[in-house]
Design a protein around this nucleic acid. Structure first.
Length: 668
RNA sequence: GCUGGCGUGGCGCAAUCGGUAGCGCAGCUGUCUUGUAAACAGCAGGUUACGAGUUCGAGUCUCGUCGCCAGCUCCA
């Protein structure tokens, strides 16, 4: 038996070993069920494959990102085997790992029911108990086609393998090089199931400690609406029962902060059916929150040199023909209102009517303001700002609470500047955006740069390059992480979006900054340059909140409804120990109100305990309680949202504390 | 838009095989009110989303419309 030398790198320590040439990862790490694969010279491999000469071998832990992917991908195979054993005619789609889990797509006659899911889980548990080995087997294209003759979707993947355009998800199945099939082998050596797959996988199904099927839904084959709709089975898998449970708890926690639920509980807004899908109304407390946000935003925009404009909600069709919106996005606009048409008694046309549209964007109107008179280079950069209400006929299936609506108010601005000013303008703009978002309590950001899709864009290469470079430089100046989104730009403009992570780690696309390469031309915008020549200005679109509605939705979820005092609709609620202390607290409230604090006193017939409960449920930042002891010493007692209390605080000190927190925009 | 699930007072829920709608909270009225998460009693509130159909009889079954939820697709 010949030997070879390998290097094992584990826990930051490298160690050389001489082993025989048949050594596998399992020989090295097989005793440890938390090691699910190996990285051999940087490449992920199954534990049961023989290691090559001079290999650098690293164990892949089950709780590492790649380890979790392997675990979940393997679980997807188990799910698919279970489905095919229960539904013989089910055809396989693809089954990749995703964040926190996996899915597998199937072409089945009938969609899965909740009962089906339970049954599939039961069979999966059985498969896991059988400890079926995942056995890798390289095959030629012809062999793969022969073996998978009954799997039309797999055949399609094989056929596409050679074409470089194999999409990312499909690559999990076929990869770039040779094709491999993974057999699931029972302990008696019989093959239970097989799937075309690049791998790697855990050594056997017993390596799956905890899993659950979570939901099912429809999904288009390869994500294309024109293709067949498959049934997608979603599941999750974790290194332990406890981690699975923690994941389920996390989901439940996220559900509790759902802004649709909290909006009703906190009496902020609602979505009356009578008005229509995706159209919110803001109740007094929500309206106040909105006003506070808008007021602060306006103040910051004044300081940053913006000018305030105002434009109508509707316009004749002509405007959106000029801007191109009607041509490019007409399907997503509300249909027109046809007005002014008159006919003769015989039905023939007497007066031609007009089509008016609800505006889906503010920019065309801002361009008209720019164009309303001759503009000098001296006016640039010209920054036009508006809280502009726009309406978009979003597909019914995508409307979602405040985060995807059909009517919304953008904090929209368009900046007109020269090509030379563009770079500095973008850098200061991005800083402005980040500062403002930080003030609202979002502090963890990264940026995404969406670049040109050559297939689907207008404008010259030079313009795109210059604009994209300017955005990239602005991103670099911010020092934040930049994620590339190649080809993700709209057809007329590259874009930077600010992604913010919320209190429980989810990211939301907040602000967007776009350099528009279309509208200045379409509206024939011009400035007079120092030499008297006419020049085309650069136009930058930007929205910080995106929309006020959506931003409120995100903030509600970020804070779980417990707003920092400066944003809280009610900042202080006074609770008397008994009715006879009402007058004392009302007086304290007057003094707070004089200091600019939004304060209420609960003078209802409820008991104090009930009032505290109500105030806590309303997530009011400060509860001020006062009874005989406080009144005797001109004091109040604080109860905070975390149930801390601070008793016997002199009234002046209480006012100072509250106004101090508000002024500093501190969370308490 | 597509696939699936769902729609019962303001909110959260119940109603067996198709037999004629109940409960809690909130609301209103009254009696209460002393120290940090629900006082007590009474009253009122529903054409079971809307429309059609099957049936002696529909919250329950069928069809259509509207809306909601999950996912897909989309998001200027």
């Amino acid at each position: 038996m010949s030997t070879m030398s390998i290097t094992i790198a584990a826990d930051g320590v490298s160690q050389q070993r001489v082993t025989d040439t048949t050594t596998t990862g399992l020989d090295l790490f097989g005793d440890d069920p938390t090691i699910v694969a190996v990285r051999v010279n940087g490449e992920l491999r199954d534990l049961n494959r023989t290691l090559p000469e001079d290999a650098m071998v690293e164990p892949v832990k089950i709780n590492s990102p790649q380890g979790l992917d392997i675990l979940r991908h393997s679980t997807a195979h188990v799910a698919a085997q279970a489905v095919q054993s229960l539904h013989q005619k089910a055809k396989l789609g693809i089954g990749p790992p995703i964040k926190d889990g996996f899915y597998y797509d199937f072409d089945v006659a009938d969609p899965f029911t909740p009962d089906d899911l339970r049954e599939i889980e039961r069979v999966m548990t059985k498969i896991i108990k059988e400890r079926q080995r995942f056995q890798r087997r390289p095959v030629t294209d012809e062999e793969a086609r022969a073996e998978l003759a009954g799997e039309p979707y797999k055949l399609e993947l094989i056929a596409d393998k050679s074409s470089a355009a194999a999409d990312e998800e499909a690559s999990a199945e076929v990869g770039a090089g040779e094709l491999t099939i993974y057999d699931n082998v029972r302990r008696d050596g019989s093959i239970a199931w097989k799937d075309l797959c690049r791998g790697p996988h855990v050594p056997h199904t017993g390596y799956i400690p905890a899993f659950a099927l979570t939901r099912n839904s429809a999904a288009y084959w390869r994500g294309d609406q024109n293709n067949n709709q498959l049934q997608r089975l979603y599941g999750t898998a974790w290194p332990s029962r406890d981690e699975l449970k923690a994941y389920e708890t996390r989901l439940a926690e996220a559900g509790k902060r759902d802004h649709r639920k909290l909006g009703a509980e906190l009496d902020l807004y609602s979505f009356p059916d009578e008005i229509g899908s995706g159209l919110a109304v803001f109740h007094p407390k929500g309206g106040l929150l909105r006003k506070i946000m808008e007021d602060y935003s306006r103040q910051r925009h004044i300081e940053a040199g913006y000018e305030f404009v105002n434009t109508p909600h509707i316009s004749k069709a002509e405007l959106f023909k000029i801007s191109g919106h009607l041509g490019f996005y007409g399907d997503l606009m509300y249909p027109p209102m046809h007005v002014d048409e008159e006919r003769h008694a015989d039905g023939s046309l007497k007066r031609q009517g007009q089509d008016y549209y609800l505006k889906p964007m503010n920019c065309p109107m801002h361009c008209l303001i720019f164009r309303s008179r001759g503009r000098s280079y001296r006016e640039l950069p010209l920054r036009l700002f508006e809280f502009g209400s726009v309406y978009r006929y979003e597909l019914s299936g995508v409307v979602h609470g405040l985060t995807r609506v059909r009517g919304m108010t953008q904090d929209d601005a368009h900046i007109y500047c020269t090509v030379d000013q563009m770079q500095d303008e973008l850098i200061s703009l991005l800083q402005f955006v980040l500062d403002l978002l930080t003030d609202y309590g979002l502090t963890d950001f990264y940026l995404e740069l969406s670049t040109r899709d050559p297939e689907k864009s207008i404008g010259s290469d030079e313009d795109w390059e210059r604009a994209t470079d300017a955005l990239r430089n602005a991103a670099a100046a911010s020092g934040l992480d930049l994620v590339l989104d190649p080809g993700g730009a709209a057809f007329y403009a590259p874009k930077i979006s600010v992604q913010a992570r919320d209190a429980i780690g989810r990211s939301w696309q907040m602000s967007t900054i776009q350099v528009d390469l279309m509208l200045p031309d379409r509206f024939d915008l011009e400035i007079t340059a120092p030499d008297g020549s006419r020049q085309r200005p650069v136009m930058i679109h930007r929205a910080l909140f995106g929309s006020v509605e959506r931003f409120i939705g995100v903030l509600v979820e970020h804070y779980a409804g417990a707003f920092p005092p400066w944003l809280a609709p009610v900042q202080v609620i006074g609770i008397p120990v008994a009715g006879e202390h009402n007058a004392y607290l009302l007086n304290v409230a007057d003094r707070l109100r004089a200091a600019g604090v939004r304060v209420e006193v609960d003078t209802s017939d409820d008991r104090m305990q009930k009032k505290i409960r109500n105030a806590e449920r309303a997530k009011v930042p400060y509860i001020l309680i006062a009874g005989g002891e406080d009144a005797a010493t001109n004091a109040v007692s604080f109860r905070y949202r975390d149930r801390r209390q601070k008793n016997g605080v002199p009234i002046d000190a209480a006012i100072d504390e509250i106004t101090g927190d508000i002024a500093a925009r501190r969370q308490v």
